[in-house]
């Protein structure tokens, strides 16, 4: 699978095309550098670099949105989620303002920049907020589709984007529709539920490997964390005896939690959660190195499935 554009660049390029076409869109930047050299053409006045000021960013965006504009706001996931979260909560989510929070460097994609710039809590924080839509596109094409959908979406949107290029999803995968989980592979006794580029690819690779061992595992791309497609998940999990979640996020509060909450209430089944352990990254590494080190890989998925299915016992609700 070929690498595609980094999600953040796919988003930038798409927005540069959309801004001149939609006269109520505005792009607010916090000197991220993402838009250096971008020509917004006739919409140049609607790109505003406000400086390094994330609270101001979110508050301004709410004021603009209350005035009928749709702001795309730009910062790193770590600074959106944990620094400016009160402004997101009160100014944006409370008022259901149509602000698009485009959060780059999601998960471990900041890599060598370290835990100050990595963001492993954003899905937990953002999905806790009423009115918020939370998406994690799994490749550049999905990012473009979500940006297009964001133009008319009511209410606020949080989009977690990576920093560097990641492999494209297999050819033929349809663009994601916000709020509808994507079945990438039909399965049997096991369901793998993943979100984000590397976790989805890990789930797909694991499913292939498991098939070679006689275990049919379905794969569900949960690109929308909120609103959570409970029906889609319950349907995909029907008849399975194990659900494994895969995410580039602390194991608390994110996809694994959302899946567990849903299935334990509506369709109990054994669940194993793969994600970042309860720790900050302690050494330098690329995104791939860190994912490997912390066990967010296809092999970890395979081993988890084998460990949980080796007894052959079906877990009773």
């Amino acid at each position: 699978m070929a690498d595609t554009l980094p999600a953040r660049q796919a988003y930038r390029n798409r927005l540069a095309g959309l801004l001149p076409e939609h006269d109520r869109l505005i792009c607010l930047d916090t000197d991220t550098g993402l838009f250096t050299g971008v020509d917004f053409g006739t919409a140049a006045a609607r790109y505003v670099n406000i400086g390094i000021a994330e609270h101001n960013l979110m508050g301004m965006a709410a004021g603009l949105a209350a005035s009928g504009w749709t702001p795309f706001v730009n910062t790193m996931a770590a600074f959106a989620t944990s620094r400016a979260v009160e402004a997101i909560k009160i100014d944006i989510a409370y008022n259901a303002m149509p602000v698009r929070i485009m959060a780059t460097h999601g998960g471990l994609s900041a890599g060598h920049l370290g835990p100050t710039h990595q963001c492993l809590e954003d899905l937990a924080v953002m999905r806790a907020l009423p009115n918020m839509t939370v998406v994690v596109p799994a490749d550049a094409a999905a990012t473009e589709a979500l940006v297009d959908a964001a133009i008319e979406l009511p209410g606020p949107l949080y989009a977690r984007l990576g920093r560097k290029a990641t492999p494209a999803l297999p050819a033929g995968v349809e663009p994601p529709v916000i709020g509808t989980a994507q079945r990438l592979r039909a399965g049997g006794e096991v369901l793998l539920v993943a979100t984000g580029p590397y976790p989805v690819l890990a789930a797909l690779d694991a499913a292939t490997a498991l098939a070679g061992q006689g275990i049919e595992a379905g794969v569900l791309n949960m690109h929308t964390i909120k609103p959570f497609d409970e029906a889609g998940l319950i349907d995909a999990a029907a008849g399975t005896r194990l659900v494994v979640t895969v995410e580039e996020h602390w194991r608390s509060g994110g996809l694994g939690a959302a899946v567990t909450e849903t299935l334990s209430e509506h369709a109990p089944v054994r669940i194993a959660r793969i994600g970042m352990p309860d720790t900050f990254a302690g050494h330098v590494g690329s995104q791939e190195d860190l994912l490997d080190h912390y066990g967010i890989t296809a092999d970890a998925v395979v081993q988890t499935v084998l460990r949980h299915t080796s007894t052959g016992k079906r877990t009773q609700p």
């Binding site: 505003v48 301004m60 709410a62 004021g63 702001p71 402004a87």
Partner: peptide, 8 residues
């Protein structure tokens, strides 16, 4: 910050 948004 809200006021800046309205004013802008």
């Amino acid at each position: 910050a809200l006021a800046i948004g309205f004013a802008l």
